[in-house]
Design a protein around this nucleic acid. Structure first.
Lengths: 333, 333
DNA sequence: TTGAAAGCGCTAACAA
DNA sequence: TTGTTAGCGCTTTCAA
């Protein structure tokens, strides 16, 4: 392991000179600069970010806590964050919480110990106090789809999205519209359900609680929910899944039963993950600009870290818009 | 930011005592231990991994370079690695190379600077020399699906997999079997094509080069390839896509043209990503234990880091096995 | 135009 | 049973 001392010695200068040529932080004559650079090259020297971070108190590293990076939505967001981070010279530490409180705590501890400069927090934690230690170590955090006092947040317009989704189905003549939600709990995405209900009510339909069933965002849960819904005495003519993955599960179940979409049943999702353009039929969905969500999250965080943001916590809202593809159609007469 | 000094002061002991109670590295009387712990608690002290890493020369951090974490295959592998790493107290830095040489170099530099203890390298780089700097900084690396002199490797049995895939199609009576490959280049996954060709030849079929078309592992490329293949004068009766994502693209194209699977055309993929159980119809595929791939990669790396592996580079081979679902069927008479 | 030296927050001899 | 101190590899003031 070659250190700055080795380089200094090889170049016949002091370590401070080496440091300064490497960082361009004060004038160094061309001649010595050249010698230093050559020594660096020849020795294959790479400055230790560790040592640097210790003195500068910045690591150029951020943490990313997601429920599960396999979930296509989070995969795409993670990608957006990673890209944006790379461009700014940040690396990102990936953390999968599985929505488990204890895992979140472990990761939080780990990230604090590692002295990350900031953290994108995309998971479902009730108690905002859990983030307090971050403050104590002045680690900035931006929170996704949820609001914590004192933290920047990127919010989705779930209410509007759920509303628009239901309106679309309503406009096709559907009256019995089912909704597959996320797991119970204080998820803001429950707002999608609220939006859906509001649209129904406005259309003079009293929402049937039987038609609202909980999934857990996975393919499999969508599939199960579909099976359940279609065995109801009075089954729905349309299903709105609160994310695309569950909608794919619905499609999969319908396919296995030979039920034609959208002729016999309309299906729609939410998010517009890449996959949803390739299902059979292609999925009508509430399109969220997912990569931009990631980018925006990252920009918020980096802006905060750089001290370029106003002191008060920021609130950015991102809307989703209806994208009609082949999986929804007129209700059968 | 509270440091070990603050804790020592608050507890009325020296910093070495604090260090030792925190690390359990030498005997400390119950009384002082209690006082230290209390001070730690009260001050919300978290040791700096940075400082610790600087002296101990280990960061408990590993790098992961993948082409794209959105690709479901790599998403699942990443998950496997992350889980395994967490269990051992390691964090993982996520890097997306997009198979770009320059990005790989940037990441490699970054990871070396950050002094990761090791690195899982899952991307397509011709020149093994690029990994030389790792050696110089004695950073261990395990390489996926490729062999570099002096590095541990986890290999897939692509040859056998391609062979078995084609055999399956052959056994269903197909004679014109197309193959959608990855991008050109020295990918080991070209072996899947070789295996496929070998099976055809053994069945007395001379492989038609027109039937082998290159994709880039994405949904879209599968779709495009399918379109191309079906416009051939003598189109195939079966398509073997070298990964599931492309097979999904194929399915999507067929769906849009109203071509029934498997009645009119058989389709199979490779990998068995989670999604492939939920396509319409469910995808026949060469099932790879993807999570285990991730776990194995991680175990190899951590084993190497811990010095528990024999000095010579390890070679672990993982096989995929045929999983017949609904997307393949008898060739039409 | 450059060097010396203090210090970032820890660990781990070495002493007591 | 505990404390003192020398680093780990850097940045950055202060001096020259």
């Amino acid at each position: 392991m070659t250190t700055i001392y080795d380089v200094a010695q090889a170049a016949g200068v002091s370590i401070s000179t080496v440091s300064h040529v490497l960082n361009g932080t004060r004038f160094v004559s061309e001649a010595t600069k050249a010698r230093v650079l050559q020594a660096v090259e020849q020795l294959g020297y790479r400055p230790s970010s560790l040592a640097r971070a210790l003195v500068r108190q910045v690591t150029h590293t951020v943490g990313l806590i997601v429920p599960d990076n396999v979930n296509p939505f989070f995969a795409e967001v993670a990608r957006g964050i990673e890209d944006c981070g790379l461009a700014a010279g940040y690396s990102v530490i990936l953390c999968n919480s599985d929505r488990s409180l204890s895992k979140e705590e472990i990761y939080l501890d780990m990230l604090i110990s590692k002295r990350v400069d900031g953290l994108v927090y995309m998971t479902v934690q009730t108690r905002g106090e859990m983030l307090q230690p971050l403050k104590d170590h002045n680690i900035h955090a931006v929170v996704f789809d949820r609001e914590y006092e004192g933290f920047d947040a990127l919010l989705l317009d779930n209410l509007g999205g759920g509303y628009d989704a239901a309106r679309h189905l309503l406009s096709l003549g559907h009256r019995r519209i089912a909704c597959i939600t996320g797991p119970d709990g204080p998820t803001r995405s429950q707002d999608r359900v609220t939006g859906y209900q509001r649209a129904l009510e406005e259309a003079g339909i009293v929402p049937d609680p039987e038609l609202v069933v909980a999934g857990d965002w996975t393919f499999e849960s969508g599939r199960r929910a579909a099976r359940h819904l279609l065995h109801l005495d009075d089954p729905p003519t349309a299903i709105f899944a609160c994310n695309d993955a569950m909608a794919v599960g619905v499609l999969s179940y319908l396919c296995s039963r030979g039920i034609r979409v959208p002729e016999e049943l309309s299906v729609m999702g939410y998010d517009n993950i890449a996959l949803s353009a390739y299902t059979c039929p292609p999925l009508t969905t509430m399109a969220t600009p997912i990569r931009e969500v990631g980018q925006c999250l990252c920009e918020l965080l980096l802006g905060r870290i750089a001290g370029q943001l106003p002191p008060e916590p920021q609130r950015v809202v991102i809307r989703s818009e209806l994208l009609v593809r082949g999986s929804t159609g007129p209700a059968r007469a």
